[in-house]
């Protein structure tokens, strides 16, 4: 099942001579990535900076990131999984079907060349983005990259890293893991944490209408989710905490305007490589912080009369 072989961004800065960006466009979506962490940086072991590194993009179209690449591979949409699987086979010296490989949009020779370059690297890294994790295949596209990085370590030093989304999504993942054991989609209704993506993940629950109230903090599902989810948010009590009035706020029963974290509210944020940073807000806000509102909500719920059922006779292992 592979695993996850990764590093903090400084390792990439100091050592990576071979960098692949797959399914992401950092030039536009993570604007300081190249200059602060990867390609243009002079690293401890890459004193020549850009000239000491080879950068490759893999995407379905030419983007500003592709224009910065040494090699820009354009593949057909919906073929990331096939390319990942082909790389795994070729790196092990295994045969593949040439005609089906070419449906990816690259020749077998091009892909073999890519494998050779990967093996010749001193330190290779694949950054993978939402072009992979949000298209058909989803987590299996990501699993393909994770497996490639793990298996490449039989030949040379190789790592991978997901390009995380905006806000403190990494921080939420980290905190959920230490308090509940799971990174997202955690159900606490049976008194202990349970995890099952597809059953307890947000979009799936909202589309099926599995919950009878929703609290939204730092997200705007009313703008991004499928219509059945939006209808559900409209029909059931929805509460929003956000510095701005969002699409979801318009569907909600209650909207709290809260201070902007990092600008006027303190906290800790986790970088995409899970390194924590202390936020030092520079401004004051007339609005309360998210934390203050959540604490008030907890106190209000706690003051309601108890309803807690008797502990179950048998803890079913579900």
């Amino acid at each position: 099942m592979g695993g996850k072989v990764t590093c903090t961004l400084g390792e990439v800065k100091n050592r990576a001579d071979f960098i692949i960006y797959w399914g992401g466009n950092p030039a536009e979506c993570h604007p300081r990535h190249f200059t602060k962490y990867t390609i243009t940086q002079k690293g401890k072991f890459i004193p020549q900076g850009r000239k000491g590194r080879t950068m490759i993009t893999i995407d379905i179209r030419e983007t500003p990131s592709a224009r910065a690449a040494d090699i820009a591979l354009i593949i057909k949409p919906g073929k990331d999984f096939e390319l990942g699987t082909t790389l795994r086979a070729l790196m092990k010296g295994q045969p593949v079907d040439e005609a089906r490989v070419e449906e990816i949009g690259l020749s077998l020779d091009t892909i073999k060349d890519l494998v050779d370059r990967m093996k010749r690297a001193k330190f290779g890294v694949i950054f993978f983005g939402m072009g992979l994790s949000m298209t058909r295949g989803k987590h299996m596209n990501s699993a393909g990259i994770l497996n490639i990085a793990a298996e490449m370590n039989a030949f040379t030093k190789f790592v991978c890293m997901p390009m995380r989304g905006h806000g403190n999504v990494t921080g939420a993942d980290v905190v959920l893991r230490w308090t509940t054991g799971f990174p997202f989609g955690v159900n606490l209704s049976r008194g202990y944490p349970r995890f099952n993506p597809g059953e307890f993940s947000t979009v799936d629950m909202l589309v099926r209408g599995d919950n009878d109230a929703t609290l939204v903090l730092g997200a705007d599902p009313g703008a991004t989710m499928p219509q059945p989810a939006i209808d559900h948010l409209t029909k059931t009590p929805t509460i929003v905490l956000d510095p701005r009035v969002t699409h979801t706020s318009h569907l909600a029963r209650v909207h709290f305007t809260t201070a902007v974290t990092g600008v006027s509210a303190p906290g800790t944020v986790y970088r995409m490589d899970e390194i924590p940073f202390t936020l030092r807000p520079g401004l004051k806000s007339p609005y309360p912080t998210d934390e203050e509102i959540v604490n008030l909500l907890i106190a209000a719920v706690a003051s309601k009369p108890g309803w807690r059922p008797a502990p179950p006779a048998q803890l079913a292992g579900i």
């Binding site: 695993g3 054991g181 202990y192 944490p193 995890f195 803890l315």
Partner: peptide, 24 residues
């Protein structure tokens, strides 16, 4: 923790109560 959800599924559970936090 993130690598082994299957371990969490079979591990001892700590139920949330007025005194105790939920946990695994």
């Amino acid at each position: 923790r993130g690598l082994v959800p299957e371990n969490q599924r079979i591990a001892r559970k700590f139920l949330h109560s007025p005194e105790l936090r939920a946990g695994i």
